[in-house]
Each structure stands twice: as C-alpha cells, then as structure tokens.
C-alpha cells in the first residue's frame, strides 16, 4: 500500500494519521436541494473516513440511481466510483469485491433503489454477507422522480400533494436481521455525531454492514403528516445504543466509566463500546434486536443506533474459500494451466 502525500493543503487544517486533510475526502460540489438529508450523510461519510485515516484510493464507492445514488460524486473524490443502474448496485459491488478483496467497499442507495426495484439484489447481498458498508439514504419517497411514495413510506404517511400512503412499509433493518446480516444500524441524517460513529464502525466491520439512515427529502416529503420529515423524525427518535469508536489495535482506556457501557470484542481483536443501551435491547441477540424494532414500530418510535452486531462474521470470500491474494492481481502464471495440461485434456477426450 503506497500513497503520496497530497501536494497542496492548508497549513493550519488538521490532518489525520496519513497526513491528509479532510479535503482529500471531499468530492465535487453537491447539486442536491439545499437542506436535503443526503448531503448531511455525505458529510458524515467524509468525516468518518477522514477520522479513520483510510487512504482514499483504497475505497471503492458504488451506487444505484436516485438523488441518494448521486452522492458518491460529492464525497471521496479521490476514490474510484461506480454509479450503476437503478437498484443493481449490490450485484456490481459483489463482482467488484470478488475481483479485489483488498479494497474497502462503500455502497450507497436510496429507499426506492433498495426497497423497490433493487429488493431482489438487496436481500441477496445481505444473505451472501458481502464485506461492504451499505448505506440507505431513506426518505420514504422517490426524490429524483419527484416524490412518489416509496416502499419504505409508512402506512398513513401523507405526501406533499396530500395523498395518504395505504401500504405497509418495508423495514430494511428488520429484513436484514431476518436474512442474517451481522451489522445492522439505523440513524438519522440530522444526528451527525451518531452517524459518524456508526459509519466508522461499519467500515471496520469485516462483513455486511447496513446503516439505514432516515434522510428527509426537503422538496417532496418534508411536509406535516409525513413520517419522514425532519420534525416528525426528531419527535419520534429513540436511541438504542450509541457507539463509541475504538480505533484499530488501541486498547480501551479508563476514560470509559465502569458500568456505563459494554465492550464488544471484534473479529480483529479490537473493541467497540456500546453505551446507553436501552433496557429492552441487547445488540448481540438477533431475537431481541428484532423485537426492539417491532416494539419501536408499534410505538411509532424510530430506533437509532447499533441494532445488532455479530462480532465474528463469515464473509463471502471466506464462504467461497477464495485465495487471499486478490483475484485481479493474478496473471497468466497464476491462472493459465498451460500447454502440457491441455495436451492431457485432449488425450482424455480421444
């Protein structure tokens, strides 16, 4: 892994462990509507990767189609990106990940992109446990096609035009839990500190990590009566467990007061600390996590934080038993069995 220090940087701007300023993690200027929740999530992504000191070129960012899927242009400008087709980011990410297990993958999608047209691919990326951070920017509508209800819109939620959604919502976090996801979190674009910590933890997580982020569409779904508006979300939010990020290979220090949190040992021997656990929630137990989501739904509450964590996941490469050396690094010497072998095969076919 080689990288070169960026040539220009503001002398006073803070740098991370790599000597990069935050600018190295930024992208082009956003063209989304002012106040769009998606922009806040982009901001959190930038901050998280900056704080993690991930070399930007070691990240591959992928998305589908939608306002949300446009955001990879607005963050991580030094990373390769792939804006694919509507609802199909999971398959492109799967192929990319199979090709090179050494990069870190970030998938960004919308609720239309994931829960409607892309539902088929979403459930399969979850059950295959691809090592990727999968962020859904969930606004309960199709922003880019001007505000139609999406499949995550709550029953009874009112659109800007005044119609009431009669259908049950798809709960992406609950679904992911059902399908065996090892890292399931929910957040709100308006709660940046929590979101940043969740993203950092998801990046570190060696398997499929879903963060379903409520992200209001100010233009089409921020009206009174909408359950994805800023006001509604703020009133109904209920944090389950906030996470404190403990950097890789750093021991937990005494700064954490005894009894206020739980330390979870991760796959790589590091820890994350969960704090402010709500009484009913135990993030290592899939069953109680599912219950917590259901209870919150009954109470019209929006549960945020880390909902579930399986500390030792088996990702797709492990399942398929692929080589530790990335497949895209292999050459003829590694891959081609050669002439003599082919002669043997010919002989067996005579």
């Amino acid at each position: 892994m080689t990288y070169i220090r960026p040539k220009f940087r503001h002398p006073s701007a803070p740098t991370n462990d790599l000597g990069y300023t935050k600018r190295e993690y930024e992208g082009a200027l956003s063209t989304l509507c002012a106040g769009c929740g998606h922009d806040s999530i982009s901001g959190a992504i930038i901050q998280a990767y900056f704080e993690l000191s991930v070399p930007p070129h070691r990240i591959a960012k992928l998305s589908g189609i939608g306002c949300s899927s446009k955001t990879p242009t607005y963050f991580l400008g030094k990373s390769h990106g792939f804006n694919s087709v509507h609802g199909r980011m999971p398959s492109v990410a799967t192929g990319a990940n199979m090709a090179n297990r050494d990069l870190m993958y970030l998938g960004v999608s919308g609720d239309g992109d994931t829960a409607s047209i892309g539902m088929g691919q979403f459930v399969h990326i979850v059950r295959r446990n691809l090592n990727i951070v999968y962020i859904v920017m969930n606004n309960g509508c199709y922003g880019l096609t001007k505000g139609q209800d999406s499949a995550t819109a709550d029953a009874g939620s009112k659109s800007k035009a005044g119609s009431v959604n009669p259908f049950q919502p798809i709960d992406l976090a609950g679904l992911a839990l059902e399908l065996g996801a090892g890292f399931v979190a929910q957040s709100f674009s308006g709660d940046k500190p929590q979101l940043i910590e969740l993203i950092k933890e998801a990046v570190k997580y060696p398997g499929f990590a879903l963060i379903n982020v409520i992200s209001p569409c100010v233009t089409f779904n921020n009206n009174p009566g909408s359950t994805k508006s800023y006001d509604y979300v703020r009133e109904h939010i209920e944090a389950t467990a906030t996470v404190d990020y403990v950097p890789l290979k750093t021991e937990i220090t005494a700064a954490y007061a005894e009894g206020t949190g739980t330390d979870v040992e991760m796959h790589d021997g590091t820890f994350i600390r969960l704090e402010k656990l709500a009484a009913h929630s135990n993030p290592y137990n899939r069953l109680t996590a599912i219950t917590a989501l259901q209870v919150a739904r009954m109470k019209n509450a929006i549960l945020t934080g880390l909902v579930f964590l399986e500390p030792d996941p088996t990702d797709l490469h492990e399942t398929l038993d692929t080589s530790e050396v990335a497949l895209n690094k292999m050459t003829e010497t590694d891959l081609c069995p050669g002439k003599q072998e082919l002669e043997n095969i010919n002989a067996s076919l005579r």
Binding site: S84, P90, V92, T94, G95, A96, A99, L103, Q121
Partner: peptide, 11 residues
C-alpha cells in the same frame, strides 16, 4: 451486474 463489477475492478 457482477460481471461488470468484477471487470471494472480488473478481474
């Protein structure tokens, strides 16, 4: 989609 993702990524 997978074929495209893998080829994009150099495999």
């Amino acid at each position: 989609g997978m074929v495209i993702g893998a080829n994009w990524n150099g495999a």
